[in-house]
Design a protein around this nucleic acid. Structure first.
Lengths: 199, 199
DNA sequence: TCCAAACGGTACTGATCGGTTCCGTTCCTG
DNA sequence: CAGGAACGGAACCGATCAGTACCGTTTGGA
């Protein structure tokens, strides 16, 4: 069945890129493992880099919808993101964050892959900010940044230790931050952005 | 002066590996930029992988001695590690942690490069633990793990944002953790079965 | 002064890289 | 049923990959 070559390319490439790294996976291997012909590949993607971008953009969408679903399954609070991460870390094929890995692999900050990775992190951060706002946290923006830092730190640590421990550690730290933010609701430091009205 | 070929190889390779990634740098380029002959290279290192390991081991020693020095310059307390990181992030050639990058690039957890990276993080963790112990913190082991997580998170964040902000954010979080650890010296609740992690 | 070790330069290997081109087949649709 | 789009396979391109072999030169110690 020679249909859906593009879809097969995307799925195969995503698995291989994530498992072994973008640079380590040649076009040859993507073709042989997906069963797509060489010509068909270059009919869909002008170059390997375009496939990389397409793969990352698809993964961004899927990963974030997965996160939304798992956060809801864990109660829907801001701390649930760490419960979701703990699940992720426990999977056998876990190899860190594909977007962090991409930024590490493609050194050039101007590259398209870099941009996709940056957009992904910004989207995740916006989502975490939403969760914090819904939780009536003062200064959700600053706290979202710290949550992202904890998430990335947990991911990198989990990649090294190959356990879910890092997610629980990060969760503990985030919980303390959250408790402190609630204890001191409005620090008269700078901006008072918007009223906490999200249900 | 055709002397010290080995030293020139190590220095050149370290710069190139860190700037562009290990896989992205070919032997050809290391030779041309270092001025070392091809034969001389393989006289000193059986393969490129051996150069990689040698480079990482040298960097581990140098980086940690740099950290010790900068921590001392910033007062010698545990939080000074984040001040040191802030300095690092501000340098123009900052491209994350070479050891995190190595673990991301070399997917195989059995590889020699992976092992060097793991040893580096363990050594940094032991050093942070020392700083915490010297600061009379209860449960320095658990807190050292959280400090490491914050350091790695800050490094990854700084690589993405290209500012020193992440170091200050991580420092703030660490400061809160430190204050909490001093407020409640020994919590006899959950920390009992904590295994001493790596061998 | 002499000699061996260390060196830089060049040519070469086979494998693989990303990418192009052509061909014959399969499939869906008009 | 005809035609064109989408497809898989294979030959081929120049460039680059890690690694080997041989060359003549430079260097430092005996």
């Amino acid at each position: 069945m020679p249909v859906q070559a593009r879809e097969r390319l995307l799925r195969t490439a995503e698995d291989l890129f994530y498992a072994d790294g973008i640079r380590a996976v040649g076009v040859e291997r993507i073709l042989s493992e997906s069963g797509v012909g060489r010509a068909s590949f270059y009919r869909h993607f002008p170059a390997k880099d375009d496939l990389v971008v397409a793969v990352l953009e698809a993964r961004d969408v899927r990963w974030r919808s997965w996160l939304v679903e798992r956060v809801a399954a864990h109660g829907g609070g801001p701390l649930a993101v760490f419960d979701a991460l703990a699940e992720r870390f426990a999977t056998a094929d876990f190899r860190g964050c594909a977007f962090i890995n991409t930024m590490v692999e493609s050194a050039d900050p101007q590259s398209a892959a870099h941009a996709v990775a940056a957009r992904h992190k910004a989207a995740v951060r916006a989502y975490v900010r939403e969760l914090l706002t819904a939780d009536n946290v003062a200064e959700p923006d600053a706290l979202a940044g710290r949550f992202l830092l904890l998430m990335d730190g947990a991911i990198v640590t989990a990649l090294r230790e190959r356990t879910s421990d890092a997610a629980h550690q990060a969760r503990d730290v985030a919980e303390a931050l959250l408790a402190a933010a609630r204890r001191e609701p409005a620090q008269p430091s700078d901006a008072r952005p918007s009223s906490p009205t999200e249900p």
